[in-house]
Every structure is written in C-alpha cells, then in structure tokens.
Nucleic acid binder design. Structure first.
Lengths: 329, 329
DNA sequence: GTGAAAGCGCTAACAC
DNA sequence: GTGTTAGCGCTTTCAC
C-alpha cells in the first residue's frame, strides 16, 4: 500500500480512501491512485483492514451437511444474497453433531465474523449464552418454536414449525382414510420434532400407533425401500408412510414401482421438502413444501439489515410450509 | 489477551504459545493460562493472528452453484477434509460466469486465503497469471486437459476429461445399436466439452448428426422431458439421448414413464454424474460415474500437503470416470 | 480534500 | 521454558 502511495504521490490514508470511499477523494487523485494500483498489481490486504476496522465482511453459516439438497440450496440462496452486498460466506458442517457445531462457533467467533447463521434451535444453553454475549447478529433457521419447552431464540429467526409439519402430515394422511401410519426419517433433531408432531396428531385422532423407523444420518435413497419391505412383511396394516425427506420418498416411489406395489392404493407415500425432483416424479409425490431458498434469502437479508444498522420489523419470521397434494397420497 | 496474561501472571507470548503450541509451555503455566482464558471468557482474535503470522487457515473454493448435488457433495467432502486439519472453507458461487469467478478470486486473494479450489480449467490467461503470481496453492477441479488446445493448468489439478466422457457416452450408445443420438445438457463450459467429445465420436463412427439441445443454466428437472417431446414429435429417428446431468435424466425417466414410452426400447437414456438418486431409479439409470466426493477429498488433501510443506507425488490427478450400465440403455 | 500519528491484537525473532 | 521488541498492513481520529 505504501508503494501505491509513493507512486501516486499521496499518503497511505488517501490510498485507503480511494479504495473504500472513492467519493471522498478528488477525481484526479482517485485516478492517479487507481493507476498506481493497476500498475503495481496491488491487492489490498483485507485481513489487515479487518483488524483495523473490526469488520470482517464475512458471515459464517453452519449446516448439518451440504450433501442434502435442502441445505445446499438454502446455503446457495444465503451466499448469493450476501454476495450482493459484498459479504463472503464462511461455511461449516456440523454433521448433525452439537459438539461439532459448538467447535465451529468458537472458530467463527475467533475470526470475528460479522454474522452467523445456524441450523435449528437446539443449541445448548452455554452456546446460546456465548453467542448472545458475543454481540454479533445471529439467525437461527429451519425451525420455529411452537411449544413452550423449546429453547428461546438467540437473536433472529427464520423458519417453520417442524412439530406442526409432523401434525399436518398426519392430518393429511388420516384424512385420506389411512388408519395406520408409518414414519421413516433420519435420526436427527428436526426429524424427531416432526415425528413428535406426527405421533401427537395420530394419537389425538385415535389412529393406531405409528410405525417408526429412524435411520442414523446420513441416509441413503434406498434406505426407505428396505424399511418398507420390512413393514409390508410384518403385515401390520400400514397403508401410508411419511418419509422425512423427498429423496427417501422418491427412492420409495421407485421401490414400489419395481415391486409392482401401486401408489397410493397399496401404499401412500408422503415426502418432505419439495425438492425440484419431487415435482417431476410419476406418480407425483405429495410432499410438504418448505420454501428453503426463501429461507436462505431471508436469513441473509436479516443479517444485512442488522449489519447496515437498520431496524428490523420482524426479526422472527415463521415462513410456514404447505402441503403439496399430488398423486402419491 | 493481555488480560489473560495478567491474570495468569505471564507475558503475552506465553499466552500465545499456550494456545498455539501448548507443548512448548510448562504444564503448570499452561494450566494457569487455560484457567485464566476460561475465567475471562477470552476468545483469541484469529484475524490479528493471521495478520501477524500471514497464515489465515482459510481455504477458498469457487463452484458454479451449490444447487447442483454434484458440486455441493464435492464441497462437502472438501470442507470435511480441510476441517480435520483446522482449515475453514470460504465459499463462492460463480453462477457459471467467468466474471463472477474473477471477482471472487480477487476478493479471496485480498483475504490472503491459504489455498484456492477452482472448478474447471477455462480461466482467462490474465486470471491464471494472477494466481500463479500470488504464490498460493491452487487446485483446479472437474476437468482434465485432454487436448493441446486446452489451457495449461495453473498449479495442481484433480479431475477427469470431459471430452473423453462425451466420447465414452457416444461409444456406449452406438454400441447398443442406436443410429441417431441426442444430447441434452446445460449451456456451460464442461457440458460443452462433453458435447464436443460426444459429437466427435459419433462423427468418427459415421453415425448420423447428433440432435443437440443446450439449456441455459440453471436447468430444471422437467427441461429434458419437454425437449424429448419435441425430439419425438420431429420424428428424426433419435433412439437414444445423453442427458448431461443425472437430475435431468431422472426427470426424463419419469417423463417416459408418464407417457408410456418404454425405456430403453423406445428411448434409451443415459445420465451423467451417478448421483445417489440414480442408483435407485426404475429402470436403473445408465450413467457416467464421477467419484465427485473423492474429487473433493483429493483437492483438500493436495492443498493440505502443500500447506504442510510436503512434496507432492502427483500434483495432477486424473481420477477418471466409469460407465455404469444399468437398464435404461 | 488530504495527511500524520496511533493503534487494531496478535506472532516472529531473538535473547535470556 | 519464558520474556522483550518490533512489526504484520491496514483504518481511525484528528488536524490542517
């Protein structure tokens, strides 16, 4: 930077201003500085800038995994939203582990990121306290408190109630005349919340006990097929299954196709997520639409508003969900 | 940090050492420092550390988009590999645009990232020169030079030849007795490389001209279905289609199912990528397997080796691909 | 509109 | 094993 200052015949500050606040520099000086920068191939050191200004222009996000499209599409939207305002995304994967998540948060706080996006509400009390103390804006996503025994939000929030999703799925399947339901999902926080809502609704509607299968993540497409074969073999009267992930549900659709089990007559299949793929299956997959790209976009916008000092009208947004009835139920 | 030093009764450096090289500090001092850290809730400022040590412990990666599983799974594997060694991932999406990619590279160089992972080999000469001058380790991915008119690699490389993929696909379909082939893919660099191989092979084997459809990204599942309907309506004798992405191919499978067009008898369908989903379709999707998680892992390992000063046996790795013949061809 | 001085919070290099 | 000194390359503050 001092080389640039020298060749342009100005001081260090002027170079800094030419880069960061060009309109506070006279047009001629600006031009000379820019020319010097180009001439020398100068690349400003943003780390030094961050240290001096205590703003990093980095936002961090933690998701369980990028190998699940619902999360990677959320991150896509988040990163794109932030990029428009010059923020970069530092990404961490927790693999559904609270310990990994806590370790990532420490690393990100150490980097003095300007904001943080988390997945879920189940952070430990210690972690929530640490984040509140840190003073950086935090957005929790992918869930929304619906019962008093869920944790208080840390700061901002954009999500939907997983418990209500479970309830809605059960309500939908029961209303289609199914007496006994099955639940197939991965064994993680939000899937278990949907399960709890699913079971609660079934119980309240006097349905028979739900057949539950929880698969340790990461799940694979074929898991649901194998489980369904078991369910049918046991012959317990299950006629509808809520698959907690559209990929699993699509795999299940193919399993039924392969085995000649008519969907939904022999087995109704309901998914979760409404992935692009789910809009193309045959029979059409009934599923629960989460507008997850909107979720990423809103999380980004909340952070950007806070970072630009704007007041935020609704810091806690329930974006809801929608039952997409197609032909698999 | 000086608060910690005070309460522990040591100097700043000792605190620094207790944090970064604990075995260079006596056990008693270490304990006192750690206690002070916990007591004060001290969070080391890694930005300051980066500035002083000129190592950021950050690696940046640029992919076209995270909304395509082949890339998000690659990034998953890359991030996981780096995380094991304490590196964080800074992520950028180029949206298949060379300008966006160049802008991201500038931003990342400004942050003094310790390494960079790029997608493809088609960076401009200026960009390649800038990266070489920067001196940071760079890994290009998702392609491998197969003809002399492709760009020279910047530094390290892990990929496969997209041109050869196209050739192999054509060879496979022609060997199954198809006389006229169609190509459906998104209109971007690597897809066009596969197309060029596909057409070259068809030409060399005296097949009829390939019917080509290039879709501006982002593609959606249903695009291929609409295009196939057009192809069949034109009645030009096409009996096999190479879909340049498993998602498109799966969508196509469903389109055929819906319309009662037998696969592969009426239309053979070949995909690209071998996504987890593709292993579950019915009929099984013939596709080209790219071991993309291995690609991410290797890119990470190459960077880690270089960053730890190890010599690298094979800095340019062709991980190849494999034709997965299932029942759709 | 421009500049001088001070300092952001660490680590490197060297000494003891 | 521990401490002292001198920066890392910027931005902030205040003066002109």
């Amino acid at each position: 930077m001092s080389d640039v200052a020298h060749t342009a015949g100005v001081s260090l500050v002027t170079v800094s201003r030419a880069i960061n606040t060009p309109d506070k520099v006279s047009p001629e000086t600006l031009q000379r500085v820019q020319q010097a920068i180009r001439h020398l191939g100068y690349v400003p050191n943003l780390t030094a800038g961050s240290l001096a200004s205590s703003r990093s222009n980095i936002v961090a996000a933690i998701v369980p995994t990028l190998s699940n499209l619902v999360f990677s599409e959320t991150v896509d939207a988040l990163a794109a939203t932030l990029a428009h305002s010059g923020y970069q995304l530092l990404l961490g994967q927790s693999a559904y582990s609270a310990d990994e998540e806590a370790a990532l948060v420490d690393a990100f706080l150490g980097r003095r990121v300007d904001g943080l996006v988390l997945t879920g509400l189940s952070q430990s009390a210690a972690l929530r306290a640490k984040l509140r103390r840190s003073g950086i804006p935090v957005v929790q996503t992918w869930d929304f408190p619906s019962s008093p025994n869920q944790n208080d939000p840390i700061d901002m929030l954009v999500g939907f109630s997983n418990i209500e999703v479970g309830r809605a799925a059960a309500r939908h399947l029961l209303s289609r005349g199914h007496a006994r339901l099955a639940f197939i999902g991965s064994d993680e926080e939000r899937s278990r919340l949907r399960l709890s809502g699913f079971e609660a609704e079934a119980r309240e509607q006097d349905a028979q006990a739900v057949e539950v299968s929880l698969i340790p993540p990461p799940v694979s497409v074929n898991d649901a097929g194998r489980i369904l074969e078991g369910i049918l073999a046991r012959n317990t009267g299950v006629s509808a299954v809520f698959c907690n992930n559209d990929l699993l549900a699509t795999g299940l659709l193919f399993t039924c196709l392969k085995n000649g089990w008519p969907v939904p007559d022999r087995m109704a299949v309901m998914g979760f997520g409404d992935l692009p793929l789910s809009r193309a299956t045959s029979p059409g997959l009934s599923t629960i639409r989460i507008h997850h790209t909107e979720l990423g976009k809103r999380a980004g916008k909340l952070l950007l508003s806070r970072l630009s000092g704007k007041s935020i009208a609704r810091p806690r947004q329930n974006i809801g969900f929608r039952i997409m009835q197609r032909s698999s139920t």
